[in-house]
Amino acid sequence: MKLEMTHLRQLEAESIHIIREVAAEFENPVMLYSIGKDSSVMLHLARKAFYPAKPPFPLMHVDTTWKFKEMIEFRDRMAREHGFDLLIYTNEEGVRQGISPFTHGSALYTDVMKTEGLKQALDKYKFDAAFGGARRDEEKSRAKERIYSFRSETHRWDPKNQRPELWNLYNARVKPGESIRAFPISNWTELDIWQYIYLEDIPIVPLYYSKVRPVVERDGMLILVDDERIPLDPGEEPMMKSVRFRTLGCYPLTGAVESTATTLPEIIQEMLLVRTSERQGRLIDHDQAGSMEKKKQEGYF
């Protein structure tokens, strides 16, 4: 008899345990689906947790209207293929005000379209638990995040007032209006995610694979010309480069890396040989020192 599970199987089992526990103990859970690779893994784990039934909660995508086109296509295809109940929410007030990452800066844009949008959506549907695909290895302030991250009625995260978590016993008690964010893949690293995608053959957005794409340089990052909304300097022509994305978000804030990796093993190989951490490709974390921590306190994931 084999007495020990491999690390990926242990991580998988832990995540399934958390997903089942949240589904059992909360009245109205939702899975936040960001369409990225971490979300894809989380969704795959949710399917495993309840097989042969479908996951007993809807997916929700907070659409900032600035996602890559291919992400939206992928999202709709996944929902169709697996028959998920998919909710899409956009902060319409922000749209009316014309909030754009190009004209308002990433800090204000993120606050309005992502953080506010998420809070509005959670309030609208009265979700008392929301699954998120955040991982502890992503960023320093997340290393201390709980699996069940307690949020006040106003969605605030108080780092000094989080419940201790022991063994695999999670405290699911909330008062009306309060909620938790649940992070089933907290203990996975970027490498674990890629290895698992490879092992389980999980579909991911094609933007993760290299292809010749039109890009322009902004603040030292290569930004994809995904649609006509990107302002170009007079006479500026997009460059055609073989690029891919290590992380996916809103296209104006997500930097591409030059790469020729077109298969999963090549992506993993590149990741192991190239030494920059993945959130480096995201503009929002670098706005100010400790910026992720501030955003979290205000209700961002």
Binding site: R136, S141, A143, K144, P164, A289
Partner: peptide, 20 residues
């Protein structure tokens, strides 16, 4: 390792953090 900003300024770790 010192994750949260306030702690970094105080120079102490005040909670459980998980590293990989």
């Amino acid at each position: 390792l010192d994750g949260l900003q306030a702690e970094r300024e105080q120079g102490i770790t005040i909670d459980v953090a998980y590293r990989f």
